[in-house]
């Protein structure tokens, strides 16, 4: 092989690998999903639900950070947070959630022996019979057809009655906007087929999000296999956030 042929070969190789590289950018890059609205009938095929596996959570706070960034949640308020429960050898219980566990947990509450400890992530339960939508005087908060409790921020008057009515303290008044605010299950993401930011960020798959109307969905499978609990079931709100390994101490 003379020099010319070699040069030709290298050129061809370079061009073709460059072509492959550029082509693969196109092939693997995500297309912008067209922002066309889903029809009402299509939305009715979904009933979004949530599972929190308290046995898997390690309290790293990645979900809280992800939520804060994704949803521009104001300081000292939280759409999701993580609680830590520690029980010592005297059976005393300490619970904390420093700044919603956005920076995880730094040190133990007890200096003596801790016999049991676990983390419980919390978020809006998107209850079937939500107290917050019941009490909103202007109808600014509502159930979307696909089962998410949302707030119309163009309509909310900021009276705070929903904040009082939520038994789980999932709502707050966003003082910059003057309206109520809370977890939307990242509605802007899930309507594009993506996962909520907290689910995406969880390194332990402690958060599962899915369609409760789909019998083949992962969420339904887990609910069929595992034992779970609900928060404050006696209040009749019928939450849609299912807690696996829920301890009696968690309220």
């Amino acid at each position: 092989m003379d020099n010319k042929d070699r040069r030709k070969f290298i050129k061809l190789g370079l061009y073709s690998s460059a072509g492959l590289l550029v082509g693969s950018f196109y092939a693997f890059s995500k297309r912008e999903i067209s922002p066309e609205l889903k029809k009402y009938e299509d939305l009715l095929k979904f009933d979004w639900g949530f599972i929190v596996d308290t046995t898997r959570c390690i309290g790293c706070g990645a979900c809280v950070r992800a939520c804060k960034i994704e949803n521009e949640v104001p300081d000292t308020y939280f759409r999701t947070w993580v609680e830590r429960y520690e029980i010592n050898n005297k059976e005393a219980v300490r619970v904390d959630s420093p700044n919603g566990a956005i920076e995880s947990f730094k040190k133990n509450n007890y200096t003596d022996d801790i016999v049991k400890a676990f983390f419980v992530p919390k978020l809006c339960n998107h209850c079937y019979k939500s107290a917050c939508t019941q009490v909103c005087p202007v109808g600014a908060t509502f159930h979307s057809p696909d089962g998410v409790v949302l707030i119309d921020k163009e309509h909310c008057v900021g009276c705070g009655y929903c904040v009082q009515a939520c038994p789980y303290a999932c709502r707050y008044i966003n003082h910059e906007k003057g309206t109520a605010d809370k977890c939307t299950l990242c509605y802007h993401r899930i309507s594009k087929g993506e996962l909520p930011a907290c689910v995406n960020a969880c390194p332990r798959n402690a958060r599962v999000f899915g369609n409760l109307k789909d019998p083949k969905s992962q969420i339904r499978k887990i609910l069929h296999q595992r034992r779970y609990g609900l928060l404050k079931p006696d209040l009749g709100t019928n939450p849609k956030c299912y807690y696996i390994g829920l301890d009696l101490e968690v309220k």
Partner: peptide, 18 residues
């Protein structure tokens, strides 16, 4: 009220469940 200018909403779109 967080948005006092919208107070009239309570008369315009009352949610009678509340």
């Amino acid at each position: 009220l967080g948005r006092p200018e919208r107070a009239i909403n309570i008369l315009l779109t009352p949610n009678f469940n509340s």
